[in-house]
Amino acid sequence: MTSTATEKSGENTRAETGRAANPEVGRAKADGAGRSGALVTDQGTTTIADAVVQKIAGLAAREVRGVHELGAGAARAFGALRDRIPGASSSVGQGVSVEVGERQAAVDLDLVVEYGVAIAELARAVRRNVITAIEQMTGLEVVEVNINVNDVYIEGDDDEPQPSRDRVQ
């Protein structure tokens, strides 16, 4: 299951093992071909932080029509609290986890989709957009994008605060 390049480097992350069912992944690593050639050159090595790939994936996923929000229930709740704090910024990487190796990356997304959207088609569009954005911006090969749909957003079903009712008028 481990590719030749992984055995040489001693790393064993999901991104480097090529866990995806694509046989080209192992071959591209073994002969050094592919987009990642720009990251390792005779003049030096470019390292891309996980947070960079996480932000790119989060922004790319949000660009797709039908994605209402990213994040699981707890992350969305913390995000709602953070949004109420003056000066706090929302996390672009919320609902996104990544594993980044020297030449490859793997992405996991937690999505809330809008009601009425075909989820299978949305997943294909999100996957395509995320892969394109990461590969074009970083030169890393994206071996997999796993999508977990946590909820369906129904317009008008927001958790709007109820008017407070004081016991004493």
Rank of each mutant, 00 (worst) to 15 (best):
R124Q: 15
A61R: 03
I131A: 08
V130G: 01
E102A: 07
R82M: 09
A120R: 13
N129I: 01
R62C: 06
A74W: 05
G95F: 05
S90T: 08
I119N: 14
A75G: 07
R76C: 00
A74P: 01
A106E: 11
V130Q: 01
A80M: 05
V92K: 00
S91F: 08
A123N: 15
Q94L: 09
V107T: 05
V100Y: 05
V98L: 01
R103I: 06
Y115W: 14
R62K: 09
V107I: 10
Q94H: 06
A75D: 11
V112W: 07
D110P: 04
V67D: 05
A80I: 02
Q94E: 13
V96W: 04
A106M: 13
A106G: 10
R124H: 13
Q104C: 13
S90D: 15
R127S: 15
S89G: 14
G66A: 13
V64H: 01
A105Y: 00
A77I: 06
I119Q: 14
A80C: 03
G71K: 04
F78N: 02
A125D: 15
R65S: 11
R62W: 00
A80T: 06
G79F: 06
G93Q: 11
S89Y: 11
S91W: 07
R76E: 06
V67T: 04
D83S: 09
R65H: 08
V112G: 08
E121I: 11
S97W: 01
L109I: 06
A120M: 14
I119T: 14
A77P: 01
G116P: 04
L109K: 06
R84N: 08
Q104S: 12
L109D: 04
A105S: 06
V92Y: 04
A77H: 09
E121M: 05
E121V: 13
A75W: 07
A75F: 02
E102Q: 03
A75Y: 05
V117S: 10
R62M: 14
L81P: 04
G79L: 00
P86R: 12
R124E: 14
E63S: 12
G71Q: 02
I119V: 15
A123L: 11
G101R: 02
A88W: 12
E63L: 09
D108K: 15
R124D: 15
E99Q: 03
E63Q: 15
P86G: 02
A105N: 04
G95A: 08
A118E: 12
R124F: 10
D108Y: 07
E99L: 04
Q94K: 09
I119S: 13
S91T: 08
R128F: 01
A74T: 12
A74D: 05
L81R: 03
E63N: 11
V117P: 09
P86T: 12
L111W: 01
Q104D: 15
E63H: 12
L109N: 06
V98I: 03
V113C: 09
S91H: 04
A77Q: 03
V96L: 07
S97Q: 09
I119Y: 14
Y115H: 06
V64F: 01
I131E: 13
A74F: 03
Q104I: 05
L109C: 04
A120W: 11
I131F: 09
